Computed example of a mutant assay.
Amino acid sequence: MYAKNKNTSYFNKIIERDLTKIRIDNIGKYFDGDSSPILASSTQGYSVGGDYDFEYNGKIYKPVDSKGNRRRWLWTIERMKAAAKLGILVETKTTLRVKNYIDKEFQVGTNVMVNKNENLIATSFDLMNSNFTNDKGTGEIEKIGISNFTFPKPQNLIEFCIKLATDKNSIILDSFAGSGTTAHAVLELNKKDGGNRKFILVEMEDYAENITAERVKRVIKGYGKEPENSATGGDFSFYELGDRLLEENGNLNEKVSIEKIREYIYFSETKEKCEQNDSDFLGECNGVAYYFIYKKDDITTLDFEYLAKLKKASSYVIYADVCVLSDETMMKYNITFKKIPRDIKKV
């Protein structure tokens, strides 16, 4: 996950966690078994200063991986000794790790334990929840009536993440939407707290329509007999992205259907769905009527003859190849002329 702003005041400070799994020792609070590696991975590079053998509880630990390759420790020997003295090292069969605390931090530089706000940091063990497992995700989409998708993420897990990092008016983007769990989580949260969160999902090919979009539709309308599966309400639009609208030379791409061009122009102008008919009229939004005069092999012209075809509206936005109307006429009829293809927004 990525945040545009890492300022912690933006994030929700209270993490909902299972307090029954928390343990306490002479240092602080921790989840049983929660630890982090001290041995550097192969991608973290090598340094002589981190290459040393270390004795702990009568056993020598070497910075080697499971294949016997020499690596390095992430810490200097001074930091390792300080951790050993504090008693926060965790022994495994082959190496050393460090215990993670919820309310304490082994501070870099000073090598002492300092207090931290336990509600600000989500640990990996916060996510080790029976409601966050893949089988839960599989069960959810089967109840919805979708069975041909492997390893779907559970809705509760994504809801947990969204609650940590958003407010009621946030927009959540999922670039690899899969079965549509993110949309499901957003819709459920909105139903629970009256929020106005929005989602943008991106998925490819048949998955997009047959799985992702289909799940969103069923969640909005409701599915099954259980009360928790009642309709969330809300709405969404489905759009297909294909060939580039404009070629590199700026001309309209002839591979793109006229219907797609019409739909794109009107949506980019108004964020509304286009009128699906064969006329030049695209639709009307907020009193403005939109027209797209286009023929593949002919020059299209906005002239006096065309004015007679316009439906009555407070103003007009008209796309054409050429406009021969005077400025006075344009002002009289509140017409904005947009030249094809120059004034079609590039994608």
Rank of each mutant, 00 (worst) to 15 (best):
S175F: 13
A82H: 04
L302T: 05
T43L: 14
F132W: 02
G180E: 00
Q155L: 12
F106S: 07
K338S: 04
E228F: 09
K295Y: 07
G222V: 09
K295H: 05
K296G: 08
T20P: 06
K59F: 08
T76A: 14
S179E: 07
T92R: 04
S314C: 09
G242K: 05
F199C: 01
G109C: 10
Q276E: 15
I22Q: 01
Y316G: 00
F292C: 04
L127P: 03
T329P: 02
N148I: 08
D297Q: 11
Y2C: 12
E140I: 11
L246Y: 09
C161L: 14
E159G: 15
Y294V: 04
Y56S: 07
N169Y: 09
D25R: 03
T20E: 13
A320E: 01
L120K: 12
T133M: 09
I299T: 15
P154M: 05
A185T: 02
S314W: 10
S237K: 14
I200D: 04
L89A: 07
K6Q: 13
K143L: 14
E205Y: 11
F31Y: 11
G145K: 03
G50E: 03
I172V: 12
G233S: 07
G145S: 04
L241K: 10
L310G: 02
F176H: 12
A308T: 15
C285L: 10
E214D: 14
I340K: 04
N57H: 12
T212N: 02
D51H: 06
K191C: 08
P37H: 02
I14A: 13
L246H: 09
I258D: 11
D303A: 06
Q44W: 07
K271P: 10
D297R: 08
I88H: 01
E78L: 06
L310Q: 08
I261A: 02
K191G: 05
F31I: 00
E247V: 12
R244T: 14
A83M: 06
Y319A: 03
C274M: 09
C161S: 13
L120R: 11
K29L: 09
N134W: 09
E209L: 14
D193A: 06
Y61S: 01
K116F: 03
E188A: 11
E284K: 09
L74H: 08
D103S: 02
A231S: 14
G50W: 00
R23F: 04
N129V: 04
N69H: 13
S237W: 10
N69F: 11
I318P: 00
N12E: 06
G49M: 10
V112T: 14
S175N: 12
V90L: 04
D174L: 01
G287Q: 10
I258F: 07
G242I: 09
R17H: 09
C274T: 08
S41V: 06
Y46S: 11
T182W: 00
E142H: 11
F132G: 01
E142R: 13
